[in-house]
Simulated scan of single mutants.
Amino acid sequence: MQFVDADTYTAERPWGALDITEIDGATVRLHWTDQPYIWHVNDGPEVFVVLDGAVDMHFRVDGKEHVESLSPGRICFAEPGDEHVAHPAPAARILVIERKGSV
C-alpha cells in the first residue's frame, strides 16, 4: 500500500510530479506548481483534479479564450484536442490522470 499526503507535497520545480501509479496505460501523478504551464493540446483524454490551492484553467473554443476557476475538489476533463493552459493561483497541488507519455 502507498499513502500520499498531497497537501504537503512540493516538487523541486514547477510542474514537478510524484508518479503514484500506472493503470492500464494511464498515469496517475501528483503535480505541484507555482507557475503556469504552457498552452497545449493533449493527444489523449486528461482528468485534472485540484487537491490544494486554486487553478485558473484557460481554454479555447473556436479560437475564443475562456477561463474556469478550479478550487479543491473541482475536476476538469479535457478531451483530446482541447487547447488549454493551467495557471495556479498562487500555488496548487493537482492530481492528473492521463495516457502514459501524453503531451
Rank of each mutant, 00 (worst) to 15 (best):
H31P: 10
M57A: 14
Q35W: 12
G44T: 04
G81L: 00
T27S: 12
V96E: 06
H87R: 14
H40F: 02
M57G: 09
D5C: 07
H58T: 12
V103Q: 09
H40D: 03
S102P: 13
S71P: 09
P72V: 07
P80G: 06
I97E: 05
E83S: 00
S69K: 10
G101S: 11
I20E: 09
A6R: 03
D19Q: 14
V49T: 11
A89T: 08
S71M: 09
V41K: 06
A11P: 00
V96Q: 01
S71D: 14
H84T: 05
G25M: 04
V85P: 07
I38K: 14
H66P: 03
V85W: 05
R29G: 01
D7P: 06
A86C: 04
D34S: 07
K100D: 10
D5Q: 14
N42L: 04
V49Y: 08
I20M: 07
D56T: 05
G53S: 01
T33K: 01
W15G: 00
R60N: 05
R60L: 11
E83D: 08
F59S: 07
M1G: 13
A11K: 01
N42T: 14
D82Q: 04
D7K: 15
Q2N: 06
V47C: 12
I38M: 11
A91V: 10
N42P: 15
G81W: 00
I20H: 10
P72E: 03
R29S: 15
D56Q: 06
N42V: 09
D43Y: 04
V47H: 13
T21K: 03
L95H: 03
G81S: 03
D34N: 00
Y37W: 15
V67L: 00
I94K: 06
A92W: 05
A91Y: 07
G73V: 00
Q35Y: 04
E12D: 15
E65K: 06
R93E: 01
P45Q: 08
